[in-house]
């Protein structure tokens, strides 16, 4: 513990240990390929109704070709450059920072802010993304969906709220429990009772 805390910066440590170091983005290439393949299988096996020309397979075929082309182009660009993300990153890929900087007469780095930290080669290697926190949240949501019909909105939503507070590093579990039940009860009253949205009451429904 103490050794990692002594490096107080959040600079990430990277080492090139194998083929996938700095190339984890190949996950996206894989996703594009899976989508393209699923789409082509779906298009080929489609049970076409009617005889419209062009038919329902016409547009998907174009999308399919586009997807395969993009998957190849993306795969090549990832293989060419290993990328190691560095520190906090507030950039928005919806917009080219270069373009906005030119229009705003500013420096590129000022647009989204830039991290002065660079990844280093020494120290403890850890994943850029904190998979433990993500795991807690995804697990919490999955448990929420499974429990919703059984426990009802108030209890399951309170549970979800509490788990996410915990995952985000809240240090007051008991106080959070109170907040969780307040939030879930108020939302049940406001949306379920007030606006008439159908939220499951669960086993509490029999008692109320």
């Amino acid at each position: 513990m103490s050794t990692t805390q002594s490096t107080s910066t959040s600079a990430d440590t990277v080492r090139i240990t194998g083929f996938f170091s700095g190339r984890s983005e190949l996950v996206v290439t894989a996703l594009l390929l899976v989508l393209a393949t699923a789409l082509s299988i779906g298009t080929a096996t489609m049970n076409v109704m009617g005889d419209t020309v062009p038919g329902p397979q016409f547009f998907p075929t174009i999308v399919c070709v586009l997807l395969y082309a993009l998957a190849v182009a993306h795969g090549i660009s990832v293989l060419r450059t290993r990328r190691f993300p560095q520190g906090a990153d507030s950039s928005n890929p919806d917009f080219s920072a270069e373009m906005l900087a030119e229009m705003g007469d500013t420096e590129r780095a000022e647009v989204f802010g830039s991290s002065s930290e660079r990844p280093r080669r020494t120290g403890r290697v850890r994943m850029y993304s904190d998979w433990k926190t993500i795991g807690w949240i995804v697990g919490g949501i999955a448990a929420f969906i499974l429990m919703l019909p059984v426990l009802g909105w108030i209890i399951s939503a309170a549970g979800l709220f509490w788990v996410i507070c915990k995952a985000f590093g809240s240090a007051r579990p008991l106080f959070d429990l109170g907040v969780s039940f307040t939030v879930s009860s108020i939302s049940y009253l406001a949306f379920g009772v007030g606006l008439g949205l159908s939220l499951p009451a669960g086993f509490l429904g029999g008692l109320l």
Partner: peptide, 9 residues
């Protein structure tokens, strides 16, 4: 945000 909440100031 969760993926970076314990890493960034």
């Amino acid at each position: 945000v969760a993926s970076r909440v314990h890493r960034d100031p």
